[in-house]
C-alpha cells in the first residue's frame, strides 16, 4: 500500500474514482442494477427505459464509481462506443430470461470486444446474468456458455447470477470489479 492510499484511508473521505460503463440490451435491468447501489435518498422508485444515457455516481467499499448507464435500445447502441476510451471497467447486464435475444447480446458483446478502443486493453468485464428470479431464466453457467465467454481470454471477467430487484448477487459482482480496478490502479502507479 502506498502512502497516499493510507492517507486517504486515514482521512476516510477521498476514494479513488473510476469510470465504468453499464451495457447490455434494453430491458436487461441496467438502470435497476445501478439504482440498487445509489444511496436511499436518491433512489429511483419508478424506472423507465433509459433514453440516451445517464451518469450516476455510487461508492463501493474503496472506490467511487462514475457509472455510464447507457440505453440498450437498438437505436442508441451506437452511442456506446463514444465512451469506451474513458472507461476503466465494463458491467454487462444480461436478461437471463430472454433466451431469444441471447444471440443479440452476444453479437453486441462481440462487437464491443472487437472495437479498436477496447481490443488491446485488459479491461475488466463484469457480467450480470440478471433476472435470475424469473421462471424461464437460464443459469449463469448456461448464460456464460451462450455468450461464448469461454473464448474470452484476454480480459479478466466474472459472471454473477443476480436479481436487481432484491440486490441478490450484485455486491458479489461489484466487489470483484472493485478488486480488479484497484489492481489496475496500483499497477498504473508503479
Amino acid at each position: 500500500m502506498g502512502f497516499f492510499d493510507s492517507l486517504a484511508q486515514w482521512l476516510g473521505v477521498r476514494k479513488k474514482e473510476v469510470n465504468v460503463m453499464v451495457l447490455g440490451l434494453d430491458n436487461s435491468g441496467k438502470t435497476t442494477v445501478i439504482n440498487h447501489f445509489k444511496p436511499p435518498e436518491t433512489k429511483n422508485h419508478d424506472i423507465v427505459p433509459t433514453v440516451g444515457f445517464n451518469v450516476e455516481k455510487f461508492k463501493s467499499k474503496s472506490l467511487a464509481f462514475t457509472a455510464f448507464d447507457m440505453s440498450g435500445q437498438g437505436r442508441y447502441r451506437n452511442l456506446w462506443e463514444q465512451y469506451y476510451k474513458e472507461c476503466d471497467g465494463i458491467i454487462f447486464v444480461i436478461d437471463s430470461s430472454d433466451k431469444l435475444r441471447m444471440v443479440v447480446a452476444k453479437d453486441e458483446l462481440d462487437l464491443l470486444l472487437q472495437h479498436s478502443e477496447l481490443k488491446n486493453r485488459r479491461i475488466p468485464v463484469l457480467f450480470f446474468a440478471n433476472k435470475m428470479d424469473v421462471r424461464d431464466a437460464v443459469t449463469s453457467v448456461k448464460c456464460s456458455h451462450l455468450m461464448g465467454l469461454e473464448n474470452l481470454s484476454d480480459k479478466p471477467w466474472h459472471i454473477c447470477a443476480s436479481n436487481a430487484l432484491t440486490g441478490e448477487g450484485l455486491h458479489e459482482g461489484v466487489d470483484w470489479l472493485t478488486d480488479q480496478l484497484k489492481e489496475v490502479l496500483e499497477r498504473k502507479k508503479k
Binding site: L25, D98, R101, V104
Partner: peptide, 8 residues
C-alpha cells in the same frame, strides 16, 4: 417484432 426485438 417478436419478444423485444424488432427485426425478427
Amino acid at each position: 417484432r417478436f419478444g423485444r426485438e424488432d427485426g425478427t
